Amino acid sequence: MSRGVIGRTLAVVRELPEELVLPPGALPATTPDPPAPTRDAASVLLVRDGERGLEVFLQRRVLGMAFAGGMTVFPGGGVDPRDADTSVEWAGPPPSWWAGRFGCGEEVARALVCAAVRETFEESGVLLAGPSASEVVADASAYFAERRALERRELSLAAFLAGARLVLRADLLRPWANWVTPVEEPRRYDTRFFTAALPDGQLADGVTSEASDAVWQRPSEAIADWEEGRRLLLPPTWVALADLAELGSVAEALAVEREVDRVIPKLVRDGDVVRVVLP
């Protein structure tokens, strides 16, 4: 089945290209039995309007990392148990709304939104929070020390926001997708993807221990880099880039209505390569 923009709604399935295979050694010799448990995670497609159209913020993960080393990804990571802290001052759709969109409980939904905000700040320096429910921080660099403390897990998001007197802006996020790591993998994540626009006045950077480089790029150009062997992409990233390439602006990306279905790919050997098969 194909995927495309239908009115303002994106259909559910996009076929993966034949060339999208995993690196040698990506598939373990044996499938864990029982499959490894999944860990909740959040990832954010951070977008802006560039001179030639929509751009997305991408990072190349450091080689040798336990998960997705060397891959080009969006900012994101696993949920911290403290992300479910109910003391976070919150503006926008409540956890119950997010729970309905992502098909999970309200506590998990709250943690996912908080993880999305926290990970985006840790990995890109972009802070989706403000001094009030209608404001956004104009210069997040003032909180660099707190950013480092969050990354080292010395500080929780709730404690950071409370100390800085900031409100989490859940209304700046949009639900995008839900991908689960294949059962063949020894390390698995149940990742919810979000979209968010770069706030006015803020800058995104690659100052994180988990990325070797970072760049703003048009989605179609990122896919072209993958086709030319300059990038390594996992299926969720390739699909998201292909979807974004059909949208012309940040306004379109935030307005599109997503059907968020849980996607659990399967890994299969095809000669010397490992292919990803979608249900």
Rank of each mutant, 00 (worst) to 15 (best):
A129H: 03
R82E: 14
E228K: 06
D40F: 15
V260W: 07
V79A: 01
R258T: 11
F193I: 10
G53P: 02
P95D: 13
T30R: 14
L232E: 11
M1T: 12
F160I: 10
D85C: 05
T38I: 15
A197G: 13
L54R: 00
P94G: 15
A145H: 07
A158L: 02
L157A: 10
G50F: 13
G70S: 07
R230S: 03
R258A: 12
A68E: 13
G248R: 15
P186W: 05
L168R: 01
P37T: 08
A242S: 14
L128Q: 03
S124G: 09
V73Y: 02
E151G: 08
L232M: 07
I264H: 07
R60V: 09
R148Q: 10
T237Q: 06
W226I: 04
G77R: 01
S134G: 08
E184M: 03
L16H: 04
L127T: 09
A91T: 06
L234F: 04
L63N: 01
V256P: 02
G248T: 08
A197M: 03
T120W: 03
F74W: 09
K266F: 09
A253Q: 00
S43N: 10
P131I: 02
A242R: 13
F102I: 01
D85I: 05
A133Y: 00
L128C: 06
G25Q: 04
S134C: 12
S2R: 11
P265K: 03
D80I: 03
V277P: 05
L16N: 05
G271D: 07
D200V: 15
A36K: 01
A251R: 15
A149V: 05
S96W: 09
Y189E: 00
S249G: 07
V108Q: 00
S43L: 05
R231Y: 12
D171C: 02
A41K: 01
P279D: 10
N178F: 05
S124E: 07
S132P: 07
E227D: 10
A138M: 08
V215E: 15
D243V: 13
R14N: 09
L278T: 06
G70N: 10
L166V: 06
D83L: 14
T72L: 13
E107C: 00
E184Q: 15
V12R: 10
D225C: 11
P279R: 12
P24M: 14
P81A: 09
P35T: 12
G7T: 07
C104W: 00
L63Q: 01
W226N: 05
R231F: 12
V263M: 14
V126N: 06
L234W: 06
L247I: 05
L234Q: 07
V136Q: 04
C104M: 11
E122M: 13
L244R: 02
A197E: 14
A99I: 04
E210S: 13
Y189W: 05
T9Q: 08
E106W: 05
A41C: 11
L27W: 06
E228T: 03
A162H: 11
G53R: 08
R8D: 10
K266I: 04
E210A: 12
W176H: 10
A109L: 06
G206D: 08
A211I: 11
W176R: 05
E210F: 13
A41G: 07
A159W: 08
A26R: 01
L157K: 02
L10V: 12
A115D: 09
L128I: 07
D213G: 03
Y189S: 01
D171Y: 04
G50S: 14
P175V: 07
